[in-house]
Simulated scan of single mutants.
Amino acid sequence: MVEARMIHRGTPRTRRQSGQAAVEAALTLPLVVFLVLGTLQLFMMLQARILAQVAAYRAVRAGSINHGNCLPMMHAALVTMLPTVARTDSSETLAAAFSPRRHNQFRVRSSYGRDFNEPLIEIVRESPDAGWAQELTGGEDLLFDQPTDNAAALRARTLEIRMVAWYYMRVPFANWVMSRMLLAHFRLRRYTAANPLMPVQRRSAWWGETSATLGRDGWPGGDLGTRMVRWSDQGHFVFPIQVNAAMRMMTPVMSEYFMGGPACNLHGS
């Protein structure tokens, strides 16, 4: 009888403890889920960063052996970045992934029902100078094979590019949280809504440092930050990975490939 009373008296306490555990689990579960999914998304972004560096090298090499032509550079970079958006583990899957994206367009639909049809990469040629290339006599660098110690001439015969690879974050929940963190970090949008990792915090006020920047402007598609905000509002969480590469020209510069200026057309022409 005594044992039964002790068990009976302990029941309300057990229920309170169970209720407290349920509340604690509800508060910490979003954080645990984000730690798992966020780690996965972060490693995928790091992989994309490595691929972007390789893509920039392959792009600048393709341009150096093709007179600075944008199209070979665009295709070389696209092929390298394809593993971030599709399977490329065989020649067949690589061809299937490249064919619909050969014009530098990536299509996907968000959970909001909004279509995303934007470039995967953008390339700007820092050197040789587009104005100099456009005024070449005969449309070609006729002194290409002449040895020189002139710094200006050496720079004119070095292909230097900067490239942005748009990485589309796909991991559910993690992409939504990380997108808002990145927008706040780069001071593109102050995030003052409820903290998704701590629902009881109604005004999280995420905001980046004044020194945070997305880098240089002048990209073919326009300002990076403006597009990040617009796409985020549409349910597309995309991050611009910016890389640079340079290589000595192995073929002479031809003016016909620089008539559009230093920036390559979004579709590679």
Results as ranks from 00 to 15, higher is better:
51 L>T: 02
103 H>I: 06
5 R>K: 05
85 V>Y: 09
84 T>Y: 02
78 L>V: 03
115 D>Y: 09
136 L>I: 10
23 V>E: 02
131 G>S: 15
31 L>P: 11
28 T>K: 05
104 N>Y: 09
105 Q>P: 04
15 R>D: 15
6 M>V: 13
116 F>H: 14
116 F>W: 14
127 S>N: 10
120 L>H: 12
50 I>K: 05
87 R>D: 11
92 E>T: 09
134 Q>Y: 08
17 Q>V: 13
86 A>Y: 01
70 C>I: 00
22 A>L: 14
112 Y>M: 10
139 G>R: 01
144 F>E: 07
40 L>D: 11
134 Q>I: 08
56 A>V: 13
88 T>F: 01
38 G>K: 12
126 E>N: 08
122 E>R: 15
142 L>K: 00
143 L>S: 08
64 S>Q: 06
91 S>M: 10
70 C>E: 02
37 L>G: 05
120 L>G: 15
82 L>P: 14
93 T>P: 00
123 I>R: 02
74 M>R: 01
36 V>R: 03
48 A>N: 07
141 D>V: 14
94 L>F: 03
5 R>M: 08
60 V>A: 03
134 Q>N: 13
19 G>Y: 15
64 S>K: 05
48 A>G: 12
132 W>F: 15
120 L>N: 12
105 Q>R: 14
9 R>G: 11
109 R>A: 15
49 R>E: 12
52 A>T: 08
48 A>F: 04
28 T>Y: 06
31 L>C: 09
11 T>Q: 12
140 E>A: 07
65 I>H: 03
53 Q>W: 03
78 L>F: 00
90 S>V: 04
80 T>L: 03
110 S>R: 07
86 A>W: 00
86 A>K: 04
53 Q>F: 03
106 F>G: 08
41 Q>R: 13
116 F>I: 09
122 E>M: 11
41 Q>N: 11
139 G>F: 01
60 V>L: 02
128 P>G: 10
79 V>H: 01
38 G>E: 13
131 G>E: 13
9 R>H: 13
114 R>K: 15
90 S>Y: 01
67 H>C: 06
51 L>E: 03
46 L>M: 15
80 T>Y: 02
